[in-house]
Design a protein around this nucleic acid. Sequence first.
DNA 1: ACACTAATGAGAATCATTGTCAATAAACCA
DNA 2: TGGTTTATTGACAATGATTCTCATTAGTGT
Lengths: 134, 134
Amino acid sequence: MADLNTSASKRNTWQKDAVRHALGEATGFVSAQQLHLVLRNHGSTIGLATVYRALADLASAGDADVLNSNDGELIYRACATGHHHHLICRSCGATVEIDASKVENWADAVAAEHGFTETSHTIEIFGTCSACHS
Amino acid sequence: MADLNTSASKRNTWQKDAVRHALGEATGFVSAQQLHLVLRNHGSTIGLATVYRALADLASAGDADVLNSNDGELIYRACATGHHHHLICRSCGATVEIDASKVENWADAVAAEHGFTETSHTIEIFGTCSACHS
DNA sequence: ACACTAATGAGAATCATTGTCAATAAACCA
DNA sequence: TGGTTTATTGACAATGATTCTCATTAGTGT
């Protein structure tokens, strides 16, 4: 019974759909805890561990972006397209996806210059958006 | 700037010196736990909480860089000069400080373009250094 | 040396995240 | 459709990093 095409056979559950949907509804980045709370407040009986698992799956499938907030918790965001970076408002959490091909190239070049291979990078820009900048 | 210990008077203790020194000795980024272990192995009786406090102080004084490792722990590094970024070997932890004025400007420009002010950013490059890339 | 009080350290407390495992329910097949 | 298989769930325990508590220790100015 080996599923050759879909790596490890996955099942579709309403829990995964709920997490995916809730993540899509959210504006900006949200933590697993926040998402779980929202779902429970909407009457869902989903478990916290399941939210964590679903988010981890989404992230590893490339359907969600992860980054660690400054106070050490992982926060997630629904993410449509391929590789990109974020411009995030520190006060309201609004997020703008930004293309960064120039920086990509710069990062790869710098790494290569120092003999590094298999490079990856973390690039995030934080600021105060115009709405929050009274 | 460097207003001396007037209102928030700080005291100099051998513990803080030990942490500062151990951090200077380390190559690359180290966690508070690792640093504590190293100090204890060298015969120090310093407490873990003190290592955490000393590192937090160094970081907020601008004498150390902080970043979160991918497995969710804070790692520190002695940092000589102003603003810069890092190229880090994923396997041996070797670190290269890189100047990134081009990217600085890019980041500020992108932020301004979207009406963001008071911008800051996180830019780190990870890879496998030539020594580790057998 | 003395007094004042910041800093220390041992352990408890916190908090996000992950592991455990019996019970549940997708997906597949006859 | 009903039965079987087994991935997935969820309640709770466990982990692990970091922070807090508080009695004790030790810098610093007088």
